[in-house]
Deep mutational scan, measured.
Amino acid sequence: TEKQERAIEYIRRLGYSEEEARRILKKANGNPDLAKEIARRIG
């Protein structure tokens, strides 16, 4: 989804690889607090 793409872009800007960014997002899917934090940061 567009939100996922924005989140991946944001995480990659922090210096993670695409693969790492996707792994972090997968974790965020099972972790509402982390997901909220990422969403808050990407606006």
Rank of each mutant, 00 (worst) to 15 (best):
R22Y: 13
A7P: 02
I38T: 04
T1A: 12
I11M: 12
G43N: 15
T1W: 13
R13A: 15
K3Y: 08
N29H: 13
E2R: 11
K36T: 07
R41Y: 07
L25M: 13
I8G: 01
G30K: 04
R12H: 04
S17E: 03
Q4Y: 09
L25Q: 00
I11S: 00
I38Q: 04
G15N: 02
K26R: 14
L25S: 01
I38L: 11
E19Q: 12
Q4R: 11
K27M: 15
E5H: 09
R23W: 15
R12T: 10
G30Y: 12
E9M: 09
S17A: 04
L34Q: 06
E9C: 14
E19G: 08
G43V: 15
T1F: 12
A35G: 03
E9H: 07
T1G: 10
G43M: 15
A7H: 03
K26F: 12
R6H: 11
I24E: 00
G15Q: 01
Y16P: 00
R22F: 09
E5C: 14
A39I: 05
N31Y: 05
E5N: 12
I8Y: 08
T1D: 14
G30F: 11
E19R: 10
N31K: 06
K26N: 10
D33T: 11
E37M: 10
K3A: 15
A21C: 04
N29Y: 08
A35R: 02
E20T: 08
R41W: 08
G30L: 05
E37C: 11
G15M: 01
E9Q: 10
I8D: 02
R41G: 11
I24V: 04
I24C: 05
E18L: 13
L25R: 00
A35P: 01
R41N: 13
A28M: 04
G43I: 15
N31E: 07
I8R: 03
K26W: 11
I8V: 10
N31R: 06
Q4T: 12
A28R: 01
I11F: 06
K36F: 10
I11H: 00
Y10I: 06
I42R: 12
L25F: 06
N31D: 15
Q4L: 14
N29L: 10
A28C: 09
L14F: 06
E9N: 08
R6P: 06
I8W: 06
K36Q: 08
N29W: 07
L25H: 01
K36V: 15
E2Y: 05
G30C: 06
E5P: 03
L34M: 09
D33E: 15
Y16V: 03
A21T: 05
A39G: 03
L14W: 05
A28L: 04
E2I: 12
A35Y: 03
I42A: 14
E2D: 14
G15W: 01
Q4F: 09
E2P: 11
E37L: 11
Q4H: 09
G30E: 04
I11D: 00
A39N: 02
K26M: 13
R23C: 08
E19K: 10
